[in-house]
């Protein structure tokens, strides 16, 4: 059964400064169904990051309606939005955004702490997800003691920790080496296979090839939205 989980209905975002009016997002509409793996592509300045922040409830659109899992985001209070960010969305940032000088275990436990999960359960779940992303032996390393690829895997474990319906990834491989990027993508595929919806921003066509659907943007608008039938395998052609 196909259930829409993200409905973007004529979304616009305009940044207003004294002198300029910058249109970051101009009347964008699309629907993403449960279980999809979507890549959003486009050059920098195309509005893909702005779109991602709106989808992640980190920002509000200037115009238009965003319905997430049947709920109109516009009508929600600040605390309700916090709950949505906490439980329904797992966000993976380009810059990883781990708490500095904090162990990987504590980083992964943080969203669960905000969700009010008891400490023993937090430790168990965080350990489980860190093992799943291959960092079972790095539980007590701090973020500056591990590589960029490992940091991103910690961020993915953190995004997964509350078993959210949607994983949003903003250039997840942007700051890490190619070999590690492949590991991250295979991880995303596993996660997608388990039923999580994944929306990922990238400007690298190679990375986008891992997705099943590719939305391409330019100047704040969607210029193409197509199925990606030829999903690449793990081996890379130019490696």
């Amino acid at each position: 059964m196909i259930t829409p989980i993200i409905i973007a209905d004529h979304l616009s975002k305009v940044y207003q400064t004294e002198a300029f009016e910058t249109v970051a997002l101009a009347d964008v509409s699309f629907t993403i169904n449960k279980g999809e793996f979507v890549a959003i592509m486009g050059p920098s300045g195309s509005g893909k990051s702005t779109l991602m922040h709106i989808l992640g409830a980190l920002d509000q659109p200037t115009k238009g309606k965003y319905v997430l899992d049947g709920k109109n985001i516009e009508t929600l209070s600040d605390d309700e939005l916090a709950d949505i960010r906490n439980r329904q969305i797992g966000f993976v940032f380009q810059a990883f955004n781990l708490l500095p000088r904090t162990t990987t275990l504590k980083n992964v436990m943080l969203p669960m702490a905000y969700a009010g999960i008891p400490k023993e359960k937090r430790v168990a779940l965080a350990t489980k997800y860190l093992k799943m992303v291959g960092l079972g032996d790095r539980l007590n390393h701090t973020s500056n003691q591990i590589s960029g690829g490992q940091q991103q895997r910690v961020a993915i474990a953190r995004a997964l920790s509350l078993d959210p319906a949607i994983i949003l990834a903003d250039e997840p491989t942007g700051n890490i080496a190619t070999a590690q990027a492949e590991e991250i993508m295979s991880l995303f595929k596993d996660i997608n296979d388990k039923g999580h919806t994944i929306v990922m921003i990238t400007h690298e066509p190679d990375i986008a090839q891992h997705a099943r659907r590719i939305i391409t943007m330019r100047d704040g608008q969607i210029i193409s939205d197509r199925k990606n039938s030829g999903q690449v395998k793990f081996t890379h052609s130019h490696q």
Partner: peptide
């Protein structure tokens, strides 16, 4: 920035 991150991970304002 840390406050932004905490909010992104689901921290409420009051927390």
């Amino acid at each position: 920035r840390e406050i932004g991150l905490r909010k992104a991970l689901g921290a409420k304002k009051k927390t």
